[in-house]
Amino acid sequence: KHLIERYYHQLTEGCGNEACTNEFCASCPTFLRMDNNAAAIKALELYKINAKLCDPH
């Protein structure tokens, strides 16, 4: 559950690194913003595939 919350935060708030290159992070310049419901679904999907989590900045 904690990991899913981290994915959700990364998708909605980002890691804080303006030069982030993680396509699944709101801080990445090319990230496409999504609403909270879509972010919750995506967080579950990312958890299932063990996607990369950013280190908070």
Rank of each mutant, 00 (worst) to 15 (best):
Ala40Phe: 04
Leu11Pro: 01
Arg6Trp: 03
Phe24Gly: 09
Ala26Gly: 06
Arg6Tyr: 04
Ala40Asn: 14
Tyr47Lys: 14
Ala19Phe: 11
Cys25Asp: 01
Cys20Gln: 00
Leu32Trp: 04
Ala38Trp: 06
Asp55Met: 13
Asn36Met: 05
Tyr47Trp: 08
Asp55Val: 12
Ala26Ser: 10
Gly14Ala: 01
Glu45Val: 03
Lys48Arg: 08
Pro29Lys: 12
Phe24Lys: 10
Leu32Glu: 14
Glu13Lys: 14
Leu32Ser: 09
Arg33Cys: 05
Asn50His: 10
Leu53Ala: 07
Pro29Trp: 02
Ala39Ser: 06
Thr30Lys: 13
Asn22Gly: 03
Ser27Asn: 09
Ser27Lys: 09
Glu13Met: 07
Ala39Met: 09
Cys28Thr: 08
Asn17Arg: 10
Lys42Tyr: 06
Met34Thr: 06
Ile4Pro: 07
Tyr7Thr: 01
Leu3Asn: 09
Tyr8Pro: 01
Leu3Glu: 04
Cys28Met: 10
Lys1Tyr: 03
His57Arg: 09
Ala40Met: 13
Lys42Met: 03
Glu5Ser: 12
Glu45Tyr: 04
Gln10His: 06
Asp55Thr: 08
Gly16Ile: 03
Phe31Glu: 06
Lys1Trp: 01
Ala19Asp: 14
Phe31Ala: 14
Cys20Lys: 00
Lys1Met: 03
Glu18Ala: 13
Tyr8Thr: 15
Lys48Ala: 05
Lys48Thr: 06
Asn22Glu: 04
His57Ile: 02
Lys42Asn: 04
Met34His: 07
Pro56Asp: 11
Lys42Phe: 02
Arg33Gln: 06
Glu18Pro: 15
Ala51Trp: 11
Ala51Lys: 07
Asn17Gly: 12
Glu45Ser: 09
Lys48Pro: 04
Gly16Pro: 06
Gln10Ser: 07
Ala26Pro: 01
Asn37Thr: 12
Met34Asp: 11
Leu46His: 14
Gly14Val: 00
Ala19Pro: 08
Glu23Arg: 10
Asn17Phe: 07
Ile4Asp: 06
Ala40Pro: 05
Cys20Ser: 01
Ala39Phe: 03
Cys28Glu: 06
Glu13His: 12
His9Cys: 11
Asp55Arg: 06
Pro56Tyr: 10
Leu44Met: 10
Leu53Asp: 03
Ile4Cys: 06
Asn37Ser: 08
Leu11Glu: 01
Arg33Gly: 13
Phe31Asp: 02
Gln10Lys: 02
Lys48Met: 02
Ser27Thr: 06
Lys42Thr: 05
Ala26Tyr: 08
Lys1Ile: 09
Arg33Ile: 07
Gly14Pro: 01
His9Gln: 14
Gln10Pro: 01
Pro56Thr: 13
Cys20Tyr: 01
Tyr7Pro: 00
His2Met: 11
Ala51Gln: 03
Lys1Thr: 07
Cys28Tyr: 09
Lys42Glu: 07
Leu32Ile: 10
Lys42Cys: 03
Glu5Asp: 13
Lys1Gly: 02
Glu5Phe: 06
